[in-house]
Computed example of a mutant assay.
Amino acid sequence: MIELKEISKKFGDTQAVKQVSFSILRAETLVLLGTSGCGKTTTLKMINRLIEPDSGQILINEKNITDEDPDTLRKGIGYVMQNIGLFPHYNIAENIAILPKLLKWDKLKTQSRTQELIKKLHLPDSILAMYPHELSGGQQQRVGLARALITDPPVLLMDEPFGALDNVTRTSIQKEFKALEELKRKAIVMVTHDVQEAFELADRICLMDKGEVIQIGTPKELLYQPINDIVKGFLAGQRLVLEFKVVSIQDIWDYLPEETIDDVESVAANLSIWEAMELLRDSERSELFISGANKTIKSVNFEQLTKAFNRYQNTQQHE
């Protein structure tokens, strides 16, 4: 869907991006991760030509983006900014309808699509007549996402989209983001410096440092197959939590007790260890029933879960 070929960019004497290459598939979320100044936002903005590269090529659907008018290009790409960027003198309905108005959609089409999106994003109808300053940070962020999705673009760029939110609101919106069917068929490039956010939301992560790509891979690959000490060091401080979030019950299935149970309410084995621990902590029950392959159901408590996870960890470290 998107391909970057040896993209470079300098600002004065500073090499912001140096020969960056990667590709993003349809229905994939690639997160650009790294510290401030590593070149991730510059890389993102070159995809919709808010910044022009000094060298290299960017292709979308195998077409070089420099062959297209920048305004036309941007109309086909959703863009969500960190500071949301809602127009304060427009009400919410007008903010969401900016691009449909430029594309000369009729009012009924715009209203119908707006209603569809605010329902999906769990916003009340009453919000459409309100102004940005009347909304909470979480509501504003959902409106910013609705505005980016209104024309159903195949590509979505997100620059620190949840960075301005408090922790509770950010966690809630991240869960909604992961569950939103609308996003599961788009090529998404997201910038963040938040390691846990990257591991929560990414199909693959592109770790950048000093304008260069250090490693691209799935969250598991970065954790268990780091290419060098830079990757190891970047993840070291949060490694255990990250492992809890990327390892699923299915991964540790063979290390769980053999006892099987029939005819009980169960959860799927694609649940992460972190999610399973949360369920055990938040519910009054002392065990979870997990449904695995061949409809096998196993019962697991906190101690069994921890032991199985530790055994899985040991196998990964020895590989």
Rank of each mutant, 00 (worst) to 15 (best):
A97P: 05
L4Y: 02
I96M: 09
D203N: 12
T192I: 10
D166S: 08
Y255T: 07
R239Y: 12
L149Q: 11
P257M: 05
K10Y: 10
Q140V: 01
R239D: 06
Q140I: 01
L99Y: 09
M158A: 05
L99R: 13
N61P: 03
F177W: 12
L157H: 04
T72F: 13
I230E: 08
K18M: 03
N301T: 13
E160W: 05
L256G: 08
Q316D: 00
I188R: 07
L165E: 12
L4A: 09
E62S: 15
D263N: 14
T110S: 14
R239C: 09
G34E: 00
I290P: 00
Q225Y: 12
H193E: 06
E319G: 09
R239K: 14
G34M: 00
Q141L: 04
Q238I: 11
L59E: 03
G85I: 01
L240A: 15
G56I: 13
T72S: 14
F11E: 00
V189F: 00
K107N: 14
D251C: 06
Q225C: 09
G85N: 06
P132C: 06
A202S: 06
R170F: 02
A308N: 09
G37T: 04
R74A: 04
V195K: 13
Q15P: 03
V20F: 00
G217C: 05
D152S: 05
T260I: 07
S8H: 07
I84E: 05
L145A: 12
F309R: 06
L108N: 15
N83T: 04
A148L: 01
S283W: 02
D229E: 14
D194W: 09
F244H: 15
Y79W: 05
W274Y: 13
N228H: 02
P161G: 07
P100C: 04
L32K: 07
F244E: 15
P226K: 02
I65E: 12
L180E: 10
R281M: 09
V143S: 06
Q111R: 15
L121I: 07
R49W: 03
D209L: 08
K75M: 14
N294G: 07
K178I: 11
E303V: 14
L201R: 01
F87W: 11
V264C: 08
G34Y: 00
L183S: 02
E3F: 11
A198T: 08
I188L: 05
Y312D: 13
M277D: 06
P124I: 01
K178D: 03
L32F: 11
A187Q: 02
I273Y: 04
G56S: 10
Y224F: 15
V267G: 03
Q304A: 13
V168F: 14
K175G: 00
N91C: 07
Q250G: 12
L223H: 08
L50T: 04
I173G: 08
K184F: 04
M208K: 03
S23T: 15
L256S: 07
V246S: 14
G85F: 00
